[in-house]
Amino acid sequence: MKRHEMSVEIGFKHCDPAGIVFYPRYAEMVNDTVEHWFKHGLGVDFDGLHRVRRIAIPTVKLNFNFMSPSRLGEVLTSTLRVEETGRSSVSFIVDFAGQDGRARLRADVKIVFVGMESMKSLEIPSDLKRSIEGYCWSAEPSLS
């Protein structure tokens, strides 16, 4: 079971006047983690996926569990782990933790592969499905 990690430096742009991360910024950080995973973990960047292969991956589920605040100047680690793969969808967890190891946020995410023109779901391409399944928590992918 693999996981994908990425460092996130908390900058001024992420924070509210109290100096803590403004909650919608976590949605951007989750997307940054997914984009980083596709490029560095799966070997296909968003340009290749969207512009060349004409595949989009809209988010259809996004739930947050906030554990403790993150502050300006901190460095967090985001960790992505795949929970389940379906015919056209992938469900995964993205955890954020501080350098002290303390959990900050857990995001429960589901994306769906769709054709850019039709915006209808399509089967995950076999090259990507093999790579994605390497990040599954369980040894066997789901049959859904």
Rank of each mutant, 00 (worst) to 15 (best):
I124S: 07
E84C: 07
F92W: 02
P17M: 09
I93S: 00
G86S: 10
P141L: 03
F46N: 15
M29L: 15
R81Q: 13
E83M: 07
V30S: 14
V21P: 08
H36L: 09
V30D: 12
V94M: 02
E35F: 01
C136Q: 10
A107E: 06
A27N: 14
G98L: 01
E35H: 10
W37Y: 03
M1Q: 12
V112F: 01
F96G: 11
I57G: 04
D47L: 00
S126Q: 09
S131A: 09
R25F: 03
P125G: 09
T33E: 05
S78W: 04
I10Q: 02
L49M: 15
V114T: 15
L42P: 15
P58K: 08
K2T: 12
L62T: 11
E35K: 14
H36E: 06
I10N: 03
V44K: 11
R54I: 05
L76Y: 07
F64C: 09
H4W: 15
R53V: 10
V34A: 11
L122K: 13
E140G: 04
V112S: 04
W37T: 02
S131L: 00
F66S: 07
R130N: 06
L62P: 03
R87T: 15
L72C: 07
L49A: 07
L143N: 02
L72M: 11
T59A: 05
E84W: 01
R104Q: 13
M29I: 15
S89E: 06
S144K: 13
N31R: 14
V114R: 10
L128K: 05
E74L: 02
M67W: 11
E133G: 09
V34W: 01
S70F: 00
G134H: 05
R87E: 11
K2L: 11
L72I: 11
T79R: 09
E117C: 07
G43Q: 11
A97D: 04
Y135T: 11
F66D: 13
E133I: 03
A56I: 13
G19E: 05
S70I: 02
D108S: 06
K13N: 09
S89L: 08
L80W: 09
R130M: 03
E123H: 10
I55T: 15
D45T: 07
